[in-house]
Nucleic acid binder design. Structure first.
Lengths: 353, 353
DNA sequence: CAATTCTTGGCAACCGGTTGACAAGCGCGA
DNA sequence: TCGCGCTTGTCAACCGGTTGCCAAGAATTG
């Protein structure tokens, strides 16, 4: 095994030594083969296919590997097998707390199955997302897309390369994990109806958001069932500031209760209404979505429909690993339940405040 | 090039084909060599060392690569070179918003330099952290440790293998990016002094936290300078709940202003004091640390010392990439400035409330 | 014009594993 | 005792790039 002898080459292509930075070579299966007195292919079989060698040989090889502090080179293994024991995860916005649970759930499941998670974000851009996805595809065994912004055809094309699982969206022909928003929305609308509200406003999310469309449909259906009036308001962006900006529209709409596309909109809305001396929930009830980190920091703490994001992450990673290991999976769309988390921002409408 | 012909082997080791899942082979430099009529080594040089081949040959090869939709196999490249264009980042708690900026900053810098970020968390456990670090070391070019929990010797051992940069902690012999907490603490203490406060309480973080110790030292020094009294209180955990639990101690201490180890403690403290009808900031001022996501959701919004985490992430990634590319870097500890963000939770002490 | 030097493409070994095919040896049954 | 089948270790080709070394041809200089 030779190292580069051309200092110019070393300086430009590989400033750190290929082996340990202290100059010592890392042990390989050839070293183990020497110590154990067997062929390198026997060492490889012992390490990756125990049972294909005799118990006596297996022990000799394992002892030698321990003695040499051997670690498998993942590139060398990946080259002939294509496997890296890595899962990719792309989220739309890494600072949006909606994704915490997804990341946490995916990460813990991956780790439990001896996989590593590689994370990237799309910054809400479908181009950036596709670029990140294509780059990840080169080195991961499979990919999870959380609230993807690219179109269905691109997603299916990626899935043609390696297994893909999508969270928060249904894509024909691709396994998905989707919160059942109707359950949580139903609970929210029933709660508001019970508190005397007659007119509900829904503050929508980004126009290209599949989930915002589903949530609006759920609100409409639940209001129809409870014989309440539903009105839809647009927001400029799904942020605290976007929630502030929509406050005037909310008041103008005459609605006494608001359900927003996400918690950030709800929090911004609450802050702006309170700045205008509107009392929450006495004069208007506010319900958010997702139960993000910080949702209970507000005064009053925010009522919200919780999407079990950690469960989404866990189920998506499990689904992906099952596909990778060839385990049959009966469903292509896995639904996880949402539920209403009642806090102080929604309650009985008091007449006149 | 043969595919496995033993179905049992295929079924157990590699359920997805090595090539595209549609069965077609991915183009390699051998295919390009055939199309362009040159040797594969010439193709490799053209793709990774433009200039080492003639302009005519370069164009032929690039055209052929585009025609075949060629993509380099990162494993094949990594095997001889050891390079994967991947950076590792380990954070203590992925759901702690302190790390958002770090992740975002590191990720955007990595992406700009054509690197991918691989993320893992230590779940506040030094064992888990070391395990994750060792695993990452196999496949990344370098590693960033954010608020690491492992001891200095382990960090230096990792750095002996591949380049490491540490955020939020100083480790002898390892490049670090550390917020200069004294600037922000100084601003906070001066602000409180100007508002008439005489006795300041510091609510500490985890005993093993290096940063908590630095912050306490900063508070002591700043109070001594401003001739204020400083008292230190312990918290059981650096969470909202931990902040709630320390409320009684805070009141007993007689301090009229509190600076906490982090924003979560401040938020929990505020909630608990407000539940006891203590008026913030009229009766007690509260200052947090880090300006996390959600710090301005509270009522009143939280005054806090902002650590520029995105800048920390960016500088750490830049430092690591500089080391990887052999660019000389003069300093081994890079300090980034903190600053006070004045919001409503701190103000003039009103006599008697 | 000849000799020397430079450019540039080819050869082949290598990176560190995996694995199909094969052969030697052992065990069992007729 | 012999023949057959199974077990298990070895051989060597392969995965898809990289790169040191070499040689052929072109360019430059004396």
């Amino acid at each position: 095994m030779t190292e580069p002898t051309n200092p110019e080459v070393a300086a430009t292509t590989d400033p750190v030594k290929k082996n340990g930075r202290d100059g010592k070579s890392k042990p390989t299966i050839y070293d183990i083969a020497k110590v154990a007195g067997v062929n390198p292919s026997t060492v490889s079989r012992a390490l990756s296919k125990p049972g294909r060698v005799s118990a006596k040989t297996q022990k000799m090889i394992e002892d030698a590997a321990a003695e040499l502090n051997y670690r498998v080179n993942p590139f060398a293994r990946a080259l002939p097998t294509g496997r890296t024991n890595t899962l990719g995860l792309i989220v739309a916005d890494i600072t949006n707390p909606t994704f915490f649970g997804i990341i946490r759930g995916a990460e813990s499941t991956a780790t439990a199955r001896d996989y590593t998670l590689m994370l990237a974000e799309s910054a809400e851009s479908s181009e950036t997302e596709l670029t990140a996805a294509r780059r990840m595809m080169a080195t991961v065994d499979g990919l999870i897309l959380a609230s993807p912004r690219m179109d269905d055809d691109h997603i299916r094309a990626l899935a043609g390369d390696k297994p893909v699982v999508v969270i928060n969206r249904e894509v024909e022909g691709v396994p998905c994990v989707v919160p059942d928003v109707n359950k949580g929305i139903g609970e929210a609308i029933r709660s508001l109806a019970a508190n005397g509200h007659k007119k509900i406003a829904y503050v929508a999310g980004p126009p290209q958001s599949w989930m915002s469309g589903r949530r609006w449909e759920g609100v409409q259906a639940a209001c129809e069932w409870s014989k309440l009036e539903a009105v839809r308001l647009e927001s400029s962006k799904p942020t605290v500031d976007g929630g502030r900006q929509v406050a005037r529209d909310v008041l103008s709409s005459g609605a006494t209760a608001v359900l927003t596309y996400n918690d950030l909109l709800a929090i911004g809305l609450m802050q702006e209404l309170q700045a205008a001396s509107v009392v929450v929930p006495d004069q208007i009830s506010i319900v958010g979505f997702d139960d993000i980190f910080g949702a209970d920091f507000t005064t009053p703490p925010l009522t919200t429909v919780r999407s079990p994001m950690a469960e989404c992450g866990t189920e998506a990673a499990t689904l992906l690993l099952d596909v990778l290991h060839g385990t049959e999976h009966p469903v292509s769309t896995l639904r996880v339940e949402t539920e209403l988390v009642l806090r102080g921002s929604s309650g009985r409408l008091l007449r006149g405040g």
